[in-house]
Every structure is written in structure tokens, then in C-alpha cells.
Amino acid sequence: MRRRTVYPFSAIVGQERMKKALLLNAIYPSIGGVLIRGEKGTAKSTAVRALADLLPERHVVLGCPCGCRWGDPDNACADCAEKYLKNDIEGTFEHMKVVELPLSSTEDRVVGTLDIEHAISAGRKRFEPGILARANGNILYVDEVNLLEDNLVDLLLDVAAMGVNFVEREGVSFSHPSRFVLIGTMNPEEGDLRPQLLDRFGLVVDVESEHDEERRIEIIKRLIDFENDPAGFAESYEKDQRILSDDIVKARSRLPSLHPGTDILTLAAKTAIYLGVDGHRSDITLIKAALANAALKGKNAADASDMLEVSALVLPHRMRKNPFQDSSLDSDEFNDWMMNEAGAL
């Protein structure tokens, strides 16, 4: 079956911050994902699905349902570990995917469980991988993540903490790597997100519908064009798409050579202390996002301007004590403060 044509990422009008957040994660997956908050009809889901087309290839173990990375026996699933020992293993290249976690999922489907069919027909125990297995090395997408049941949220958090899914159920004991980029979308009017889950998202963007008249018209035009002839529409953006995915590949290869300097490390620490955030995730994410931003721009080092550019994606949701305010850190005041601090270094 041919894959349905998705709306091209480069054809999305406006929403620059959301696009930036998604691209940074495609470059540096351990940034920890994005939470996209906004009302209905702001291209949230479109953007996430469109990202799939731009994602790079991964070197994986051929036929492994858990998406084990090739040549990494230390972090392989139980089955692959056995194959490594027997030296009966092959690698292949696969595109990163967007794996969706539907709200109606059951615990069994998310975590994986005993393969019932195999048990009945062959009388043997076998692990049936769940969504967390398929999400390994890929993007795990939860639409309306704020409506996800609490016990599923707990399971996600449990796995995200270690990057490994340990399964102990229905007499099956199995473990496999489960490192994923968590992308969630939500409409804040329908309820809040639990603080523990919010903290797990590396970046958060608030999207609004477009206010500019001309841009609104452009959005409608492109949408109609796409609906009438998806393939033709996608084709007309092929060049833009290629440029963008080349940029991502280049940035990814540049990333390992970028090391955070003392200046931005200190700036990240000062920022976190200034804002009084809990824990150290904000510092880590701030640095990683700044590195990815520099890599995307083709720079050889990340500096204060990179950090300033990503700070609005990293910080607002981590600030202590204001679950109410529309997570707006007073950007002007903050920018001034940060530039001042950066200058002082």
C-alpha cells in the first residue's frame, strides 16, 4: 500500500517557533521532545505528521520489532542480545517514524505483553512488543496528551526515566530499549497536564492561529490546493523539502563536534538560578537546544544568541510557582537580563 501523501512541512505557513522546536528535536533527539499547546486548527498535528518526511535514516538491526540500534549490544533488547552472541545478526537502514499513541490504548498495548496467539498455537512464551517498542529510536506522538489516562502517563514516565522498557507481566520477563522523542499536542482549554509529564518535555511551544489577513488567505489557498491534488502539491514543494532535510542531515553530522563552552554553561546555570527552576533538566535542555540551534545554522560553536533564541522554548513551563499565568515569561525584561549577563561573561 502506498503511503498517504502528507502535507509537506515546508508548506506550513508561519508557526515558526513550532517548526523550529520540531527541527531541533530532529537534529538532537535527546533534547526530550516538544509539547505543542494551542487551540484547534493551528496545524499542530499537521506539523508533527509532516515532520516524518524530513527525518533521517537510522542504522538498525534487521527485523527487530524493538528498533534496536545496530552495533550496540550493550543497549539491545533480549532477543537481539542473544543474536549478537550467536553472531547471527544483520543491520539495515530505516527512516525514523512517527509512532502514534492513541488515547484509547490499553496498558498491554503500550507496554507489550504475552503473545497470546503464540502461546495457544505453540505453547511457548513469547513477548509481543507494544507501542513503546515501536517508538524506540523514533518519535512517539500523543495527540491531546493532556487527556491521556493517568496510569498510561505513569508508564510513559517510568520508561522515559531509563530509556528502557522492563516488562514483567503475564509471566513474560523482557526488556528492550525505548528511547523516543516525545511529541504531544494539547488544547489547554480541555485541561492541564500533570507537572511530572510537563517537566519531561524538553521544549514547549504555544501556537496561536494566524492574525495576518494575507497569511490566512495563503493558508486556505494551500489547503485547498493540497486537498484537490495532494501528490501534485507535494511535488511542488519537493525542492524545499529536500533543502530542509539536507539541512537536518548536515546539522546532525555537525553536532558531535560542537562542545558547550564555559560561557554558555555558566549562562545556563545563571538563568536557571535567576528563574528559580526546580531540578537540572532546564540547564541541560537549554544547552542541548542551543547546540542544536547552532548546528542548524551551520555555526561551529553555540553562543549566547543561540541560547536566547531557544530560551522561550525551554524555560516558560519550568518556572516554579505559576501554573496559572499564560506561561509568559516577560520576554523583554528577560531578554535584557540575558543579554546583559552574556555581555558580562
Partner: peptide, 8 residues
């Protein structure tokens, strides 16, 4: 793990 059942 959180998913462990009683037998697990």
C-alpha cells in the same frame, strides 16, 4: 517496573 503484575 510499574507495569509488573502480581506474578511478575
Amino acid at each position: 517496573p510499574l507495569n509488573a503484575d502480581n506474578e511478575g
